[in-house]
Structures are given as structure tokens and as C-alpha cells.
Nucleic acid binder design. Sequence first.
DNA 1: CGGGTTTGACCCGCGC
DNA 2: GCGCGGGTCAAACCCG
Length: 159
Amino acid sequence: MENQPMLLLGSRSCYNSMNGGLKSQISNSNIKSSHQMGVESSENHNTSSYLSSLKKKADKKIKKPRFAFQTRCQVDILDDGYRWRKYGQKTVKNNNYPRSYYRCTHEGCNVKKQVQRLSKDEGVVVTTYEGMHTHPIDKPNDNFEQILHQNHIFPNPPL
DNA sequence: CGGGTTTGACCCGCGC
DNA sequence: GCGCGGGTCAAACCCG
């Protein structure tokens, strides 16, 4: 039932399209990164060792805020100032293009990002952010930060 | 040599 | 209960 967030097509420069109704999503859930998954995990099962770590992320009802915005760019990877490490790539049935899964390279910062290219328009790339960064931007990007602020998204909220 | 990418395997939720 | 679709991990590999 995870409805895909409505996306707005700006189509001007590289990235300037943002999800319009994401404000409600942010206010809906309390932005708070509980812990990095796998902090304890002392027990080590036979085969499914990583299984325990997976279950560790039991956030119950706390769903992470996810912002999605489309970008019209030839390159899928948008340099938003953070360092991302790709941890997976899967092909979705709806789209012929594979979806890439990225994760922020930072201790305690479990922010995920998935990039998907539309099969209809190969020039359109959908970037979905999940979670918020709990650390300053490694490489400040004025352009990207402006977009975030314009859409009431603060990558570095005062906790 | 280290960090990041690649790729297959595995798991889980949901629909049928 | 099984199959499918989607998400994650981890070992291997590649590149600077």
C-alpha cells in the first residue's frame, strides 16, 4: 500500500523537481533516527546471521520519511554532497531499467536512497530519499540544498 | 591496499 | 501454501 509519492515534473535544469506533498509526510512522522541497525547483535545464528540484524530494525509504527523527486538528467547519480555506497540493484517489473539502492556512508546515518529510471522516459530519473542525515554535508551543494529548503526539507535538522 | 561497485543469494510481505 | 515482487546482505571484484 505504499503509494508512490506524487511527483512533479519541473524539467528545467538537472534537478529542480520536487515532491509537492511531502510536507505532510514529514510532519506525520517524528524524524528521529533511533539507532544504527545491528548495534548489539550478540547472538550469531547458524545460517541466518544477518537475519537478526534485519529484524533489529523493528521500528514498529515509526516509518521513515521518504521524499521522492524526479530529475531530468542523463546521469542517474546526483551529487547532493553526501557520500553514497551502492548496496544493491534490482530490476522492477514496471520498468525495464534496474533500480539502484544507495546508502549513506556514515556511522549512525542510515539514510537510504534509491534511484530509478523510467522506462518510458530514459531521461527522467526518480530519486527517492529515505531518512534524514544526522551529520553535516560532506560536500555542500548550493543548488541541491536550495531545492531542499524550498521544499521545506532540512537535511540537517537541529535535534 | 582500501573503499566502492557488482552480482547472486536470501528473506519477507502480499496476492492468489 | 506457494509464487512473485521487492529489498538487503555479503563475498568477490575492480579501480584509484
